[in-house]
Write a protein that binds this DNA or RNA. Structure first.
Length: 220
DNA sequence: CCTGGGATTTTCT
DNA sequence: GAAAATCCCAGGA
């Protein structure tokens, strides 16, 4: 019952984006805040690659928001979507080439009780509670804790304060080896990306990867 | 099972 | 002023 899983080192983040998006499957995302250690196993990822990918924020050039995507691999790119949710990405590729991998779903591993709290108490007008103050039906199920890019950020208390975090050196947010062993290519499924209908021909790219038969995927 | 709408606010035009 | 790498619920089949 060790809490110290071996951290992933710089070299891991230097793989090309598509290999890395698959190599991330099964790895542990570790979040330490206050006295809590929260861990989820990565079960779904999506690649956003280069200046021409119309689904990528970087397709409209380097801005205050997207500059982190042009930075060095191994940094965290965290942004606000739809005015109310955060998404967590891992920056990839050499400096000045914009690319990142969106983490779309986690299988909760450790700190599950705290993840329930984090998901339920989200602002005074929380929509994840019924008017009587009880968790909604979905939130009574562990599989709904982190099976989506914004849900996992709520569960692990990841917000814009962590934007730019270096995952190679940070003690608050980092990746670790999967103690259960290696994922083989036959366990990986690829599919079209989600929620990017505006991306023209790029919406058909099979740049989403997930673990076959895993219950914690965002969409099947 | 599926479909549609509303919440909410930063970011860029 | 419009769009947005989402989520949740209600309602219909």
């Amino acid at each position: 019952m060790s809490n110290n899983y071996p951290r992933l080192i710089r070299k891991f983040y230097q793989q090309n984006t598509f290999e890395l998006a698959q190599a991330l499957l099964g790895k542990y995302l570790v979040r330490k805040c206050a006295n809590n250690v929260l861990i989820g196993k990565i079960v779904e990822t999506e690649a956003y690659y280069g200046p021409n990918d119309k689904a990528s924020h970087a397709s409209r050039g380097k801005t205050e928001r997207t500059k982190i995507m042009f930075d060095q691999p191994g940094l965290a790119y965290i942004y606000l979507v739809y005015g109310m949710y955060y998404c967590f990405n891992i920056v990839t590729e050499a400096k000045d080439f914009p690319a990142a991998i969106l983490i779309r779903a986690l299988e909760p591993v450790k700190g599950i009780k705290q993840m329930y709290k984090n998901r339920q108490c989200h602002g005074e007008h929380s929509r994840t509670m019924t008017p009587t103050g009880h968790p909604s039906t979905k939130l009574r199920m562990t599989k709904s804790l982190a099976n989506g890019p914004a849900k996992l950020c709520q569960a692990l208390k990841i917000d814009k304060q962590l934007n730019g975090t270096n995952l190679i050196t940070s003690t608050k947010l980092y990746l670790a080896e999967n103690p259960q062993g290696k994922i083989t290519p036959s366990q990986i499924q690829c599919a079209k990306r989600i929620g990017i209908d505006y991306a023209g021909s790029y919406k058909h790219k099979f740049w989403r990867y997930y673990l076959k038969d895993n219950k914690f995927i965002s969409k099947f």
